[in-house]
């Protein structure tokens, strides 16, 4: 059986000059040949620093940005070949939840209007059925039916994010793209939304691509983890092995950089040589080598491929020295 979402060599480019004499001359590769799949009912966590291309990848999946290369298959259909009514139908299979619930809900629409809109468009519900379904969706995210006539500003951040989840569920998607859904929320509120997402996973067997820079959140929720660095996936595998025995030096640096809420664990900064933005843009070889504590001359010449650690393993890493123990 083919996976629900299948990305093959997905590449997205942006023109670095939108206008002026250099328009179209230079292009920046935000996503560089990403292959990744999400099966039915599976939660895949996508982690990486700001600017690594994780949000752009999610936007490419729903065709919010055009592809420069590669293919996206959703439920066996090639998204690139679809247009018009067929594309609209395919899009109801996948829904997005955004980081900022203050920005993703229209302040002039009541919660009812926000949730009813996809029901009208995609499921053609009207009248009583529409009211009933809206109320049911509100309850499924733990909000009372009667709140449906209120406006977004009358809700807290956590409640707004739940409304965004309810709206995403309205079209009965099979895949949710959650782009940093809890990053702007306070700890106690974050817990509510994480519990809701975890509950949906168990109850509705939803598949999810969960994007976050917070590894503890990703670990809590995901079956599988993909680590992205400068537009590429550098490590991928089941959550447990990736967290317990990370093979890529970048994953290890990311793990050691997370502040752990445990004062008995001494704090040590990750062994990185510079920070992401002050490092130059590398166009050949390993893109991480200028920050990598393990880089050798070979890293500048060979472009490491994402390969399985062992022939039978699903744990893959893109590093020439992936089998070596960290220094």
């Amino acid at each position: 059986m083919s996976p629900l979402l299948d990305l093959c060599g997905v590449t997205v480019e942006f023109a670095t000059a939108e206008s002026g004499p250099r328009r179209g001359r230079s292009r920046m590769r935000a996503v560089d040949g990403v292959s990744l799949s999400v099966s039915d009912g599976e939660i895949v966590g996508l982690v990486g620093e700001s600017g690594c291309g994780k949000t752009t990848l999610a936007r490419a999946i729903v065709k919010l940005v055009p592809l420069a290369g590669g293919t996206i298959h959703l439920d066996g259909r090639d998204m690139g070949a679809l247009s018009g009514a067929k594309l609209r139908a395919a899009r109801s299979t996948v829904q997005m939840i955004f980081q900022d619930p203050y920005a993703s809900l229209n302040p002039r629409m009541t919660v009812f209007d926000a949730i009813a809109e996809p029901l009208r468009v995609h499921r053609r519900l009207r009248g009583k059925a529409l009211v009933e379904e809206t109320g049911r969706l509100m309850e499924s995210v733990g909000l009372a039916r009667r709140l449906v006539r209120k406006y977004p500003h009358e809700f807290s951040g956590g409640q707004r994010q739940r409304i965004a989840v309810a709206r995403a569920l309205a079209v009965r998607p099979r895949l949710i793209l959650a782009d940093e859904p809890v990053s702007s929320l306070d700890v106690s509120i974050q817990a509510q939304v994480l519990n809701l997402l975890s509950d949906l996973k168990n109850r509705m067997k939803l598949a999810m691509l969960f994007i976050s820079h917070d590894l503890s959140v990703v670990r809590y929720l995901s079956h599988r983890i993909a680590v992205m660095y400068r537009g590429r996936i550098v490590e991928e595998g089941d959550a447990k092995p990736v967290f317990e025995t990370p093979a890529h030096p970048y994953t290890r640096a990311l793990m050691s950089a997370i502040p752990v809420p445990d004062p008995s664990r001494p704090f040590r900064p990750p062994p990185l040589r510079s920070d992401a933005l002050s490092a130059g843009t590398l166009t050949h070889g390993c893109r991480f080598r200028d920050r990598c504590p393990m880089a050798t001359e070979a890293c500048a010449e060979l472009d490491p491929k994402l390969e399985a650690l062992h022939p039978s393993s699903s744990h893959r890493a893109a590093c020439l020295r992936k089998h070596e123990k960290p220094a």
Binding site: E49, S50, H213, L215, A253, L254, S256, A257, I258, P259, F267, R268, P269, P270, L272, D275, A276
Partner: peptide, 11 residues
């Protein structure tokens, strides 16, 4: 800041 940068600033 990103986590790796955060760790460096804290150190």
């Amino acid at each position: 800041l990103d986590v790796t940068v955060q760790a460096q600033i804290l150190a």
